[in-house]
Design a protein around this nucleic acid. Structure first.
Lengths: 222, 222
DNA sequence: TCATCATTCAATCACATCGTTGAATGACTG
DNA sequence: CAGTCATTCAACGATGTGATTGAATGATGA
């Protein structure tokens, strides 16, 4: 049945694109919102030409789309399902690749104060009122639902806006899920500035699914 | 942040495996249940050595697992989420790759009686009692829920069991979803035997999600 | 213990992919 | 209409991949 093979070859076009760590990293950044080529190049550390070529591959595979704005070209995810795709991939990798489990436990849960905070711990500390909850997802996702009382600063603006946080309060940061690395970066940046900061062990999807309260109004925006 | 790159490289190991149409086809077959290497080789048309190598790659990437039974080695999906992964991939490809839409509409919806039947049509014809509903999924999935009154024959056994179907009744076949190609093959085989046969345009997941009745007992087994 | 047979390995070829380089495009802006 | 600047193209070398071949492995079952 040649048709079946041709169809799977088409699906494989999309699969091929997922076979490069650099492209997956670019998709991570694009999940935060549309970005220009050189913004992506500088944030990922790739050369501009290389970034451009990866983006074009992803565009041909239908994972991202491009739009010109002024002299720049902004790339964005073609579809929110791309995030789902990556989440499923992350889950499978976590369960079946020993290396992933190892890396995560070594780098993220291990020693001292970098250990992540559980949801129960977050609830307990939140009731004490002495903790700032930081939502490190893009504003659109924050607006679509977030942990009550959480402050939203997207990773791109963290460095500018870090001064607005109360340096005397502990910060607990979360993002899209346990493999969304933005909360790691936020914690690292905060700690570099002298904050006491921790990651939430899971992310907003897990919070919501566990039946915890969700706030929708875009208040608390810093 | 080297950790982030290493993590994405691990995810990419899994992604790479999705970058070959042959491997996706093998995953399609494995979604029907565990299979030995040479069973997979003969059903896919690949050489045995080639099949073995693809399976080993998928095993290293954590998508499938292997178990010896007697002198044969049976491979199976490592996780049901692999099916989810493929479903998401199919959906994205359908929406964003013009070639996929074209191929599907050309080969599957176009001319004459190959056109698929909608869920509403199925319901209408089922009430008339003149139609045989054929579930072409593996027995385990059939047992976990199926369209009421549907007969279950897995694709591997269709040729042997086709004679048991009532040749005077129209057959409507469905499988796992619109891109699960087993129902295409079933319809082709049935039509080759002189049956009036059609595909359901969607699959069981869509049926269930639409709120239609689901039957659980493993009756009607042919 | 030995013969059998399903599976895997090793070596090879053609071909695709990744990243780099420097030049070319082409759409805004003055 | 010409300069500018973000992006893309084209060509290159190193490396990786897919498929084929024939030989090797190794667990089974007599």
């Amino acid at each position: 049945m040649a048709f079946k093979q041709d169809l799977n070859d088409q699906f494989a076009r999309m699969g091929k694109v997922l076979g490069s760590g650099r492209r997956l990293e670019l998709l991570d950044y694009l999940a935060q919102g549309a970005r220009s080529v050189d913004a992506l190049a500088s944030v990922s550390g790739l050369s501009i030409a290389n970034t451009s070529q990866h983006l074009q591959k992803m565009q041909q595979a239908g994972l991202v789309c491009a739009e010109r704005q002024g002299k720049q070209i902004f790339y964005a995810l073609a579809d929110d399902e791309v995030i789902t795709l990556m989440a499923v991939l992350h889950g499978l990798a976590e369960r079946h690749l020993a290396e992933v489990r190892e890396m995560v436990s070594l780098h993220l849960t291990a020693r001292d104060s970098l250990a992540p905070v559980s949801v129960d711990e977050l609830l307990a500390r939140a009731q004490s009122g002495l903790v700032t909850i930081l939502d490190v997802r893009p504003p659109e996702e924050y607006a679509a639902g977030h942990v009550p009382g959480a402050v939203n600063i997207s990773p791109a603006h963290l460095h500018e806006q870090i001064a607005r946080l109360d340096a005397g309060r502990e910060v607990i940061a979360y993002c899209r899920g346990p493999y969304c690395t933005f909360s790691f970066e936020a914690v690292a940046a905060l700690r570099a500035q002298g904050f006491t900061a921790h990651r939430l062990e899971s992310g907003f999807p897990e919070w919501k699914q566990a039946g915890h309260p969700v706030e929708y109004e875009q208040n608390q925006q810093v």
